[in-house]
Design a protein around this nucleic acid. Structure first.
Length: 435
RNA sequence: GGGCUCGUAGUGUAGCGGUUAACACGCCUCCCUGUCACGGAGGAGAUCGCCGGUUCGAUCCCGGUCGGGCCCGCCA
């Protein structure tokens, strides 16, 4: 007999069907017994009446894998309006151990309970409520991919094992590589820029590894980055527009498609405009200092509280909780960034709901200028890690720019989670390497 | 890395310098024909993170250690 999924049961009223899944809930009332079976599409309620069938359930814990054959009956009192009657149960994989967490109700996501949540992640993710987070994550990724394919980007995959730390900034993980030292890629930065010379427009969705000893709600040591790079751009604006449109498209479509799921996850109401407000770093410092009395005008970057504040500000004043912060000061620049005529960096951060989601700079594509910037940053242009990058530059890269975009952070903020780790299936942080 | 804070059955929590450490969920047994957070009766399950100290006595107080959380720094 053909298997029927939970979501299709109601359309088989009157028919004998086979349902397969995991025992999700037992409610044994005596003469009348209910069990709920979970499959990839949802839950099916089954009424078990015969004693011999009820006996098969004795000692079987949540998670028991079973096949159930029964007749679909329309029943207003059943969830979904239909249920199985007269079932014949086959226990495929008996489970007699009590699961470590209860998956038939929402798991605790209170900060102090996240450790338990992640310790039991392999089982906790069986909770339909928990799965919603990752269905939404998958939909955001699908939407982003679709958008970039539509805009003629080529998806690429670059190596994650590298010869040395080249990019500067974040701490890198070192590992043994056949007797030599290798590092794990902290981003595909130099590779994606080199690939502009081949494909003009590229993107990659891949893990990046950060060895920062950061213990915060917004850091992990393995993160999923969306990296975009586009050549022949007219200017920095073109990069910002692309990132803005991509974000708007992904988030608004997910808010439509997953309205019920987002509601049950208590996601905040989306306040977004097609054009995100743009502020310079100096403007944010000024506005923040005026509003809070805390003087940040000498900070080179935004402090975390400014990131939160400016998003709230823009939400109230502009009706949009995503903003770009532009014109970062020269002191914060990296060697491959491009300077504007006014001496600030052609670099913008995308902030959404108080958190930096993406960083979107234009790149310096003039070989001589780049070499000078490397020297100024104390880097050796002859280092093997830069050789190929500089060659790509020398053999012709057009004006280009792109972004590094934190997928985990986007998922976290889209849903309104409190910690970026909740947006990862199996998060990695300073103390967690399992499961 | 710095500051502050927390650690009690499988899970979530309460509690106290002094007899058998409490409650809810889950689990086991029994009762129950419309449950959906089912209900009822009973039961099992905790060397109170670890080490040391103070004390007649420590789960409770102190120190250390390990682990968690929050903020800051670093970073994206």
């Amino acid at each position: 007999m053909e298997r029927v999924l939970a979501r299709d049961v109601a359309s088989h009223v009157g028919q004998e069907v086979l349902v397969q899944g995991w025992l999700h809930k037992k409610r044994l009332l005596g003469g009348l017994n209910f069990i709920v079976v979970r499959d990839r599409s949802g839950l099916t309620q089954i009424v078990v009446d015969k004693d011999e069938e009820v006996e098969k359930l004795r000692g079987m814990q949540v998670g028991t894998v079973m096949s159930v054959q029964g007749k679909v009956v329309e029943e207003q009192r059943a969830p979904g309006g239909a249920e199985l009657h007269g079932p014949v149960i086959t226990v495929e994989v008996p489970v007699t151990d009590e699961p470590p967490v209860e998956i038939d109700k929402p798991l605790s996501h209170k900060p102090e309970n996240l450790d338990t949540l992640f310790d039991n992640r392999h089982i906790g993710l069986r909770s339909p409520q928990e799965q919603k987070v990752f269905k939404i994550r998958a939909a955001l990724l699908r939407r982003i991919r679709d958008f970039l394919y539509k805009n003629d980007f080529t998806e690429i995959n670059t190596p994650k094992l590298l010869a040395g730390a080249t990019e500067g900034g974040a701490e890198v993980f070192k590992t043994d590589y056949f007797g030599k030292e290798a590092t794990l890629a902290q981003s595909p930065q130099l590779y994606k820029q080199m690939m502009v010379g081949a494909f003009e427009r590229v993107f990659e969705i891949a893990p990046a590894f950060r060895a920062e000893p950061s213990a915060t709600t917004r850091h992990m040591s393995e993160v999923y980055m969306l990296d975009i790079e586009m050549g022949f751009i007219k200017g920095h604006e073109e990069v910002l527009d692309m990132v803005q449109d991509l974000t708007y498209d992904a988030v608004t479509s997910v808010y439509k498609e997953f309205a019920d799921e987002l509601k049950s996850l208590q996601a905040p109401e989306l306040v977004l405009k097609e054009k995100f407000p743009r502020y310079t770093v100096a403007q944010v410092h000024e506005l923040y200092t005026k509003a809070t009395g805390t003087d940040t005008t000498n900070e080179k970057d935004l402090i975390p509280d400014e990131e939160r504040w400016i998003c709230e500000h823009a939400k109230k004043e502009q009706g949009c909780e995503a903003v770009f912060v532009t014109n970062f000061p020269k002191e914060a620049m990296k060697f491959y960034h491009k300077l504007a005529d006014d001496g600030t960096v052609l670099w913008a951060d995308l902030l959404f709901r108080g958190l930096e989601i993406a960083t979107c700079p234009m790149r310096e594509n003039r070989h001589e200028v780049l070499v000078e910037q490397m020297k100024a940053a104390g880097l050796d242009p002859d280092h093997p890690g830069y050789k190929y990058f500089l060659e790509a530059m020398r053999y012709g890269l057009p004006a280009h720019g792109g972004c590094g975009y934190g997928i985990d952070r986007l998922v976290e903020k889209t849903i309104g989670l409190g910690n970026v780790k909740e947006a990862a299936l199996f998060p990695r942080d300073i103390n967690r390497l399992a499961p």
